[in-house]
Design a protein around this nucleic acid. Structure first.
Length: 145
DNA sequence: GCCAACGTTGGC
DNA sequence: GCCAACGTTGGC
């Protein structure tokens, strides 16, 4: 799962412990949270749009998908006037801090491994803020730590 | 249903 | 700040 450290970093998650992952307004990402994520699933926490884009920590899914309250709040930047509590359009999951990596694994380094060519972060135009990681990729990336 | 315009993401 | 990628919007 990606996050811009300027808005929410791995340090913030460590401080907060568990955080509702609000503001996802992409149908593909929403569907993955709704259909594919299970409590206890492991998560890579990735810092995007910053000096050193990198995988920085581990987390876990801490809840099933439930409606994202910010969509009903007119004062929220995530407000969606087309959504209603009766028929919520957007959901979120809670994410629970597990640990920081011993060192951040920068995107530049991930790109150097041919075995990670088809890892989504390494693909051009990758804009999904949430995507699945295969066991092979997971194990390889963790071994770089 | 097509497609141009526009907005956003995110690496560099 | 630039630019590629790509999702969304809206006119037709």
């Amino acid at each position: 799962m990606k996050s811009e450290p300027d808005s929410y970093s791995i340090d913030d998650l460590e401080r907060d412990g568990t955080e509702p992952w609000d503001g996802i307004r992409n149908y593909q990402a929403r569907n993955m949270m709704r259909d594919d994520m299970k409590v206890g699933d492991k998560v890579f926490f990735y810092h995007s749009s910053c000096k050193q884009p990198a995988i920085v920590g581990l987390a876990r899914i801490a809840s099933k998908a439930y409606p994202d309250a910010t969509q009903f709040d007119p004062n929220s930047k995530y407000h969606d006037p087309k959504s209603s509590p009766e028929e919520p359009r957007w959901v979120l999951v809670d994410v629970k801090f597990e640990r920081q990596l011993k060192r951040p694994i920068p995107l530049t380094e991930l790109k150097q491994h041919p075995a990670l060519d088809d890892f989504q972060l390494n693909k051009r135009g990758n804009r999904l803020s949430i995507f699945p990681v295969s066991k092979q990729h997971w194990d390889l990336i963790l071994s770089l730590e």
